[in-house]
Write a protein that binds this DNA or RNA. Structure first.
Ligand SMILES: [Zn+2]
Ligand SMILES: [Zn+2]
Ligand SMILES: [Zn+2]
Ligand SMILES: [Zn+2]
Lengths: 163, 163
DNA sequence: CCGCCTATTGTTACGTTATAACATGCTCCG
DNA sequence: CGGAGCATGTTATAACGTAACAATAGGCGG
């Protein structure tokens, strides 16, 4: 098992389990840290967990309307703020969209692979990338606080299927 | 001279020269490749070159209005498309804003350091980061096409000045 | 010089993403 | 009960980005 393994997104896996354990991890973390995974926050997280794809805020709003409980933009943005600040979801800057965290509970500086064909998002646990960024920052005496790493291209599936 | 040196942005330097040589590089590249650095494109590039900061499209529009030649959003977005596709400027996804390329002419996958205090942007020539991303992608059989690397934190100046 | 072609710019209108500001409700605890 | 603090509802608007079509400019063959 290498450092980049299990990116959860491009590979086949038991997604029902994936979803459940992510929700459970969120519950646990909230319990442990005195946070509240309220109805709206949980709802948004569940929507994000349906697929390993990024969803825009308005796409989430559409989904919420469709399941009979419409909401307004501030509601979903507030839920997203909560989820992102507590590490249950991440924003994909390149897409102005959000994805459920694939490694909830773990402390991590995430790096993503975005398939430009099918839209799948894989969240890597790449020590190597984090290290490289940290090293570069250090060399320039820059106090690193956050990093955005988003690689775009074709996932193995789509790469194979290209004409 | 290390691989990360000369990030041009946090360090003191002859910025007038910096600006002139970037413009010159753009002229040269355009001449060589049969592109036209038209008035609007050049104008936007000059505005971006004023500082090593990212400017939003509407900030550019304001600046264009202020110097007496107002423009509409499509004008500035078209100029930005040209500059970005030809490597004279880059989009900073995290900020929804644009910055002049600090290494025009060179082929590069840029990585940025963004100071969250003063707003300066440094464009690194980090082979290391690019390599790490490439390696991670390869390991997952992902066909890398483009990468976004944006590190946020405090530049040396602001880091020193913190209370 | 003329007419034509292409690239660029102008103009209007609109779509998408995100937030400000304030009202309301909810829950815990004294 | 009553207030404090957090979460949510509601309205309006800001900020970012693009579609579609009209007008213009500049090169080139005739
Ligand atoms: Zn899954
Ligand atoms: Zn994560
Ligand atoms: Zn400079
Ligand atoms: Zn550059």
């Amino acid at each position: 098992m290498t450092e980049h393994s299990d990116p959860l997104g491009f590979t086949h896996h038991d997604h029902a389990h994936c979803r459940e354990s992510a929700l459970q991890a969120a519950e646990d973390t909230c319990a442990r840290e005195g946070l509240s995974l309220t109805k709206q926050r949980r709802r948004v997280l569940e929507l994000l967990l349906r697929k390993h794809k990024a969803m825009g805020a308005y796409e989430l709003l559409d989904a919420m309307r469709e399941d009979g409980q419409p909401a307004q933009p501030p509601t979903v943005y507030r839920a997203l703020d909560f989820l992102v600040s507590n590490g249950f979801a991440h924003k994909i800057e390149r897409l102005n969209a959000f994805v459920a965290c694939a490694h909830p509970g773990e402390r991590h500086k995430p790096a993503f692979l975005l398939c430009s064909d099918c839209g799948l998002v894989a969240e890597m646990r790449s020590q190597g990338i984090g290290e490289a960024v940290r090293a570069a920052a250090e060399e320039l005496d820059f106090a690193l606080e956050r990093m955005v790493v988003e690689a775009e291209g074709l996932c193995p599936q789509c790469r194979g299927a290209r004409a």
